[in-house]
Computed example of a mutant assay.
Amino acid sequence: MSFPEPAPLQEADVVVLGGGAAGLMCAITAGQRGRRVVVLEGNERIGKKILISGGGRCNFTNTGAGPGNYLSGNPGFCRSALARYTPRHFLEFVERRGIAWHEKKLGQLFCDHSSKEIVDMLEAECAEAGVEIVLNGRATAVGREGSDFIVETRKGKWRCGALVVATGGLSIPKIGAEDFGYRVARHFKVPLTATRPGLVPLTSPDRTLHALSGLSLPVAMKGGGGRFEENLLFTHRGVSGPAVLQISSFWQPGEEIEVDLLPGMEAAKWLRAVQREPGGTTLRHVLATKFPRRLADAWADREGEWADRPINGLKGLFLDELGARLNRWMFRPDGTEGYAKAEVTLGGVDTGALSSKTFEAREVPGLFFIGEVVDVTGWLGGYNFQWAWASGHAAGESV
């Protein structure tokens, strides 16, 4: 009986694990420096997370991206990379390829047409830089042989002097997210911080909220040290929408979240002013002038018999208390919708173990971690893509 001969050991200067935003940027930057680079992508195509981002139009950066827009156990770690590769740098990249773009709001930049344009751009740049991309090449094991790394996949083995881990986090497992990057870190004794879902809808057992599913309104949310003015969306499981996704990265289990349902308005003063107007308008009708009808009715029902009485017959103290509740509705989630619905993963490779300039592990020469696998997480709105470009570029200049 004969057995197939093992695949030959292939050589590269740099092997990048993961063909997402950070990994491709690193590969392009290193390839342009003349390095022999191989990207091992576990899926059948590169850039899957890029393709589904921004509703299919890819919110590829944010013009205001800076250290204050990121969460990390070491808030200053991201400063160097973000300063050296800015949103302007990536925008020039996009414009050079003739990709039409627009600013949606709050500095968020999107493709006019399709996120596929960003993936095609990155793929073309890889080709021009001589980068080899291996699809369905998910790494199964990583080891050390002298000063080199050996990477095993179902497509063969590679030896390299520099290994870049750009495998992302645990969010959106349906597109191939897994914990391999964390396993590599553990194998080489690179410390990790605790991980949890970020930019994720929050859940609640309150059936009143579930009945409002589909309603959206602008709010201000505060919790865990974060504050955001964006839209809130009621869902059949709790709440979502940009404001909720943003605050979810700051929220800790058991904490309450403060929601201002009338941001920019002192609700008590507004109710008092309406009370002074002539006519017999009911409180229910007054609430419906500011909120969607279903929400106005749900809130009015909470007020009991007072809801359908003329507002000019209600006590001022009652209106003051109601106004305070509208400006400061305290909401306590019982959890999140988990990694399946999370846009990012909080936590990851401890930044204290990495160089903020090169992203090389301090105790493991030649081993680099970039992008979402690192304990740096951006706000919603293009910040995480900018982190991918900046961290990938920094590592690509160093490998």
Rank of each mutant, 00 (worst) to 15 (best):
E258W: 00
I247S: 01
E103Q: 02
K341Y: 12
V164A: 00
N74S: 15
G73K: 09
L24I: 08
R36A: 15
G20F: 09
L51G: 08
A127Y: 00
G176K: 00
G56S: 10
T195K: 02
R186A: 15
E266W: 06
E11G: 03
S114Y: 09
A361L: 02
P173W: 09
T281D: 10
R45A: 15
R88N: 07
P365V: 07
D148E: 08
T193D: 06
A7T: 10
G238E: 06
S204R: 01
L192V: 05
N69G: 08
L295P: 00
V38T: 11
A129E: 01
M265C: 07
E363G: 01
R33W: 12
G56K: 05
W299E: 04
T358F: 09
G68W: 08
G214Q: 06
Y85D: 12
A353I: 13
K315P: 12
G42Y: 13
R276N: 15
V200C: 10
N231R: 00
G19D: 09
A100T: 11
G381M: 04
A21P: 00
E125N: 06
I99Y: 04
R97L: 14
V15A: 04
D112I: 00
G382A: 08
L170I: 03
F318L: 10
L215P: 00
N43K: 05
S80I: 14
G366F: 12
W270Q: 09
G143Q: 03
R362T: 14
E343G: 06
G241W: 08
R45M: 15
G254I: 07
V274M: 12
I172F: 15
P218N: 03
M265V: 14
P67L: 12
K174Y: 14
S204V: 07
G304Q: 11
G313P: 05
A21V: 04
D301G: 13
W299M: 11
G18V: 06
V165A: 07
C26E: 05
I257E: 00
A361W: 03
G382R: 00
E255D: 12
A361V: 14
V151D: 03
E303Y: 13
L271M: 06
K105Y: 13
P310C: 10
H102S: 05
D297Q: 07
A81H: 12
H113K: 02
A100L: 12
P218F: 05
K174L: 15
R309I: 13
E372F: 05
D375I: 04
K341N: 09
A100G: 14
T235D: 12
P242Y: 12
A243L: 11
W389T: 03
V38L: 14
G396Y: 02
F331A: 02
A300S: 08
A81P: 14
V200G: 02
Q10E: 11
R272K: 09
V374M: 06
G198V: 04
L51A: 15
G198S: 07
F180N: 01
V14A: 11
L317S: 14
E152T: 01
F180G: 01
G18I: 03
A162R: 05
K48E: 15
V16N: 04
N62D: 07
Y182C: 01
E343T: 06
M121N: 02
G156Y: 01
R183G: 10
E145M: 02
K116F: 15
H89C: 13
